[in-house]
Nucleic acid binder design. Structure first.
Length: 481
DNA sequence: CGAGAGTACTATAAAGTACTCTCGGTGCATTATT
């Protein structure tokens, strides 16, 4: 009966009169007690999928989320909508707050937490006593992207689900290849044949795709500044190194009138918050960032995403350029590749994976490693708990190494390909969509950018009208208060 | 891994060569003290 009235409840609880693409399909599956994996582009209301379902089912919704800032945002959003039974079960709580929350878990409808928190015995025990209507994993690509070598607790979610009595489950993400979808399902121990997969095309038609290749850094820098002086912002430049992000930020400050800031993990939370909000308020023209910048940041009018270094895999690349053009207006992705840049990625990922010899040594001396401050050994400790034999562990890392190597090769092929870059991406994601290649779709390596045709040339008059817009905003604020 | 910076060497001196050194991302929770 409920499913016929989904729209009614959408209106009743959230005030919307229609669903966005994919939402209804996901919610219907969940109401039918069917697990679901949903790959929906950012901005299409992924969280509505569990928010509405939560209202309709009896019990608590648990949402596993990778970042405290994301949890914060979601909690605020729900509270703003009038839902008071929301809990952010994180390390931000004081000891007594946490205690109170755990004693009163049954009073909450939505509980947000990071996967690490589920490793806490008391938290798990309390949750086991709850009636859980839905177990949600937000940003579920983290299972395969972060689980194996960064945040291993992502690999434990399957076991956690089991300990919680295999509750109805929903995995959400914006970008996932078939390989990633499979990793998500097996990581969560979902029955592949019984899981509903809802997947919308990853294609973002309003983002023009381009790449350039350089023999030395001087040429690359020249191109970068050439771009910065002509292209319309606001924009984002991605780096694989914090040092480089700082360095180029200073160069841009010195050589242009652009307002720019660097953003990476060396900044404290306060600075990050300030920079993020200045950027959102159009008080910064661009940000030089590492991969720390992105998840959960919703700025609509980013016009360009430049990559000064290439990421380790196409999936990350798509996530990063996908931050452009959320408003649907024409935007551009420009990859600046210099021969040898892949060495950074190789060092960052590939060479950090232990080889057979190291695993051998680790297994033979395991007791010595039980208590350690070394993060990579802590990681090894966690992962080795998932496998019963040395051979299994070795093959896990070998497979990981191969996978990373292949991902990097595919990234390089993307740069080099003379075919339609958009089609290359869609084929990689096993997206069935076929592209009708046209002039404003993408271009071959080193072709001149059609910035004029794309309407992406920096225009002073437009800057002025932007300032008028700002002026109206200020007036608006004054009159409201 | 591999690029770029830095250093030592050569020996008319200056600038080129060869060598070594350095560097590289993402965050949760938790601890014991102030």
């Amino acid at each position: 009966m409920i499913e016929h009235n989904l729209k009614f409840y959408l209106k009743k609880y959230f005030g919307y009169s229609s669903f966005k693409e994919g939402q209804e399909e996901v919610i219907k599956a969940l109401i039918d007690q069917k697990d679901a994996v949903a790959i929906l582009p950012t901005g299409t209301g992924k969280s509505m999928c569990y928010q509405l379902t939560g209202k309709l089912l009896d019990g608590t919704v648990i949402i596993v989320s990778p970042l405290l800032s994301l949890i914060q945002d979601q909690v605020e959003q729900l509270r703003f909508q009038g839902e008071r039974r929301v809990l952010a079960l994180t390390s931000n709580l004081t000891y007594s707050e946490k205690n109170y929350a755990l004693q009163n878990l049954h009073t909450y409808k939505y509980i947000y937490l990071a996967p690490e928190m589920l490793q806490n015995n008391e938290v798990l025990a309390r949750l086991q006593q709850q009636k859980i209507s839905l177990f949600v994993v937000d940003e579920a690509h983290c299972i395969s992207q972060w689980g194996p070598d960064f945040r291993p607790d992502y690999l434990e979610l399957g076991k956690i689900r089991e300990k919680l009595g295999n509750p109805l489950t929903l995995a959400l993400t914006a970008t996932a290849s078939q390989q990633t979808i499979n990793a998500i399902m097996s990581g969560l121990e979902l029955d592949q044949s019984a899981t509903k997969v809802v997947r919308k095309s990853v294609d973002r038609e309003n983002i023009f795709l381009s790449a350039f290749k350089f023999n030395n850094e001087q040429d690359k820098l020249e191109k970068l500044f050439d771009l910065l002086n002509t292209i319309k912002g606001p924009g984002l430049i991605y780096f694989s190194s914090k040092k480089k992000a700082n360095e180029i930020t200073e160069k841009i400050k010195a050589k242009t009138s652009l307002k720019v800031a660097a953003y990476h993990a060396d900044l404290d939370m306060n600075d990050r918050f300030i920079i993020q909000h200045q950027f959102l308020d159009n008080k910064l023209d661009l940000i030089c960032a590492t991969s720390a910048f992105g998840m959960g940041i919703n700025k609509e009018n980013i016009r360009y995403v430049i990559h000064y270094h290439l990421p380790g895999e196409l999936e990350s690349y798509i996530q990063e350029i996908g931050r452009a053009g959320r408003d649907g207006k024409q935007s551009i992705a420009i990859l600046l590749y210099q021969k040898g840049d892949e060495g950074i990625q190789q060092q960052l990922s590939l060479n950090n994976i232990p080889d057979n010899q190291m695993i051998d040594y680790y297994i033979n001396n395991k007791q010595q490693f039980a208590e350690t401050d070394n993060e990579s050994i802590q990681l090894l400790n966690k992962i080795s708990n998932l496998y019963s034999s040395k051979e299994e562990l070795q093959s896990f890392f070998l497979q990981r190494k191969r996978q990373k190597f292949n991902s990097l090769q595919q990234m390089l092929q993307y740069v080099d390909t003379n075919e339609c870059k958009r089609q290359y991406i869609l084929d990689y994601f096993e997206d069935n969509k076929k592209i009708d290649h046209h002039e404003l779709c993408c271009q071959k390596l080193n072709d001149d950018l059609p910035l004029k045709e794309l309407g992406l040339i920096f225009d002073e008059n437009e800057q002025k009208s932007l300032k008028i817009e700002e002026f109206y905003k200020i007036i608006d604020k004054i009159f409201r208060t």
